[in-house]
Every structure is written in C-alpha cells, then in structure tokens.
C-alpha cells in the first residue's frame, strides 16, 4: 500500500468509525461504509487538510469510493 493509501485509510477509519478491513479500494463511502452526505463532505475536507490541497466541488463529486480517492490524491497531492 502506498503512503497515500495508508493515510487515506486512516482518515476513513477515523471519520466513519469503520474497521480497517472494510476499507478496500472498491468500497463506496455511502453504500458500503455507511457515510451520509455530510460525512462525505467531511471526508473530502479531511483529505484537503491532510494533503494540503484544494479539491474543487465538481471533482469532489466524482470521488465516491476509497480507490477513487487514492487515485485522485496520488495524482494531485503535493
């Protein structure tokens, strides 16, 4: 697992209160990990803070799974 993937996983476990084993690349925040609409907004904010970037709203809306988050952050993290 990349450093970025590990950090993403840690945030998701912390914010959504799920087990590490549930946080696999295909897992959907809302369908699999129990997030509601406010949780997903908070997750994006935490990613922004952790990786010191700004994720535009239109991009944020396309990040719905763990894998999509890791891919996006690997491409954009500074």
């Amino acid at each position: 697992m990349s450093d970025i993937a590990a950090r993403v996983k840690k945030i998701i476990v912390d914010k959504l209160g799920v087990e590490e084993s549930e946080v696999n690349p295909e897992a959907s925040f809302t369908n699999d990990l129990g997030a509601d609409s406010l949780d997903t907004v908070e997750l994006i904010m935490e990613f922004e803070k952790e990786f010191n970037i700004s994720i535009p709203d239109e991009q944020a809306e396309t990040i719905t799974t763990v894998g999509q988050a890791v891919t996006y952050l690997e491409e954009h993290a500074k």
């Binding site: 406010l38 949780d39 907004v41 908070e42 904010m45 922004e48 803070k49 700004s54």
Partner: peptide, 11 residues
Amino acid sequence: GTPRFNPFFIP
C-alpha cells in the same frame, strides 16, 4: 480566509 467549516458545524 478560506472557509473550511465542518459540515457538522451547524447541526
């Protein structure tokens, strides 16, 4: 100055 309010702030 960038607003980064938590979505749970108000509720």
